[in-house]
Amino acid sequence: MSFGNIILLVIAGAGVYLIAIYNKLVSLRAGMDAAWSDIDVQLKRRYNLIPALVDTVKGYKAYEGETLEKVIAARQQGLTAGSVEEKAQAANMLSGALGKLFALSEAYPDLKANTNFLKLQDELGSIEHAIQNARRYYNAIVRDYNAKIESFPDLFVAQKFDFTRRDYFELDESEAERVRQMPKIDL
């Protein structure tokens, strides 16, 4: 084998390797987009459930109108959010408002016993679980993608073809703690 053939083999091997890096980055980006779509679908299901929940609780509005207003405002913010960060903030805000709403049911036995309210609460719980699973999957793909575009030699391909970092979809820890706390209810 001549020296020229060896050089051609090395160049061809490097080309194939660069193509493999590019294809992996494209695959990860497509996976992130699909995972984000799953989160978005679950968030929309959650936002679509809110009007029925609010209608069920409206009979108790005289006592806790502010709580319902916060739920409605959080839903609207979620519907209009654009970026991953804005959607995460809206989801956090809605989780806090819903936490207060469900804690409210403890203070009103009639509401707590309402079958429609219980059904909606269960459905919302299953949606929350689906969001949590979709969030974990999305964040895992984002982690892999971000690590790949920052690793040598992949970073050269990523920079050349404009692959940029993606944000995680995270629950704000202070918001998570606030949701877990039982609000004070004065009757």
Rank of each mutant, 00 (worst) to 15 (best):
S83T: 15
I185T: 05
K184M: 08
E128K: 07
G99F: 10
Q121K: 04
Y47S: 03
K112G: 04
Y145N: 05
D33H: 05
I149C: 09
Y145E: 01
L53P: 15
S95W: 05
F156N: 01
G15T: 14
L111D: 04
W36L: 14
A74M: 09
A103V: 09
Y60L: 02
A134C: 08
M1D: 11
R135L: 06
A34G: 12
A30N: 13
V26T: 02
R166W: 01
R46M: 11
R45Y: 05
I19K: 00
F163I: 03
I141R: 05
N133Y: 10
T164V: 10
G13T: 14
A91F: 04
K24Y: 06
I39R: 07
A12T: 13
I149E: 07
D144H: 11
A35R: 06
V71H: 02
S151T: 13
F117C: 00
L49F: 00
K70P: 08
K100Q: 15
I6W: 14
K24V: 07
M1S: 12
Q77W: 01
A91T: 14
Q77T: 12
S174A: 14
L68A: 03
N23T: 05
A90S: 12
F3M: 10
D162W: 03
K100I: 02
I21D: 09
F3Y: 07
A130E: 14
L18S: 13
L118F: 02
L8Q: 11
G99Q: 10
A107H: 06
E175N: 08
T67V: 14
Q181N: 13
T115F: 01
R29D: 09
R29S: 10
R165N: 08
E86W: 04
E69G: 10
S105V: 05
F156L: 14
D55W: 04
S174K: 10
M1P: 00
A34I: 07
F169Q: 03
A113Q: 06
Q181A: 14
L53F: 12
I39M: 08
G99A: 09
W36Q: 11
I185S: 02
L118H: 00
Q121A: 12
K119P: 00
A62M: 03
L8S: 12
F102C: 10
G82A: 06
D162Q: 09
R165K: 14
L79G: 15
L68F: 06
D33C: 02
V71E: 03
D40Y: 07
A91M: 09
I50S: 02
E123A: 04
A62K: 10
A130P: 01
L8V: 10
P183K: 12
N92Q: 05
Y137L: 12
N146D: 10
I11T: 07
R143K: 15
K119G: 04
L18Y: 11
A130W: 02
D167S: 12
K44P: 00
I7C: 05
I39P: 15
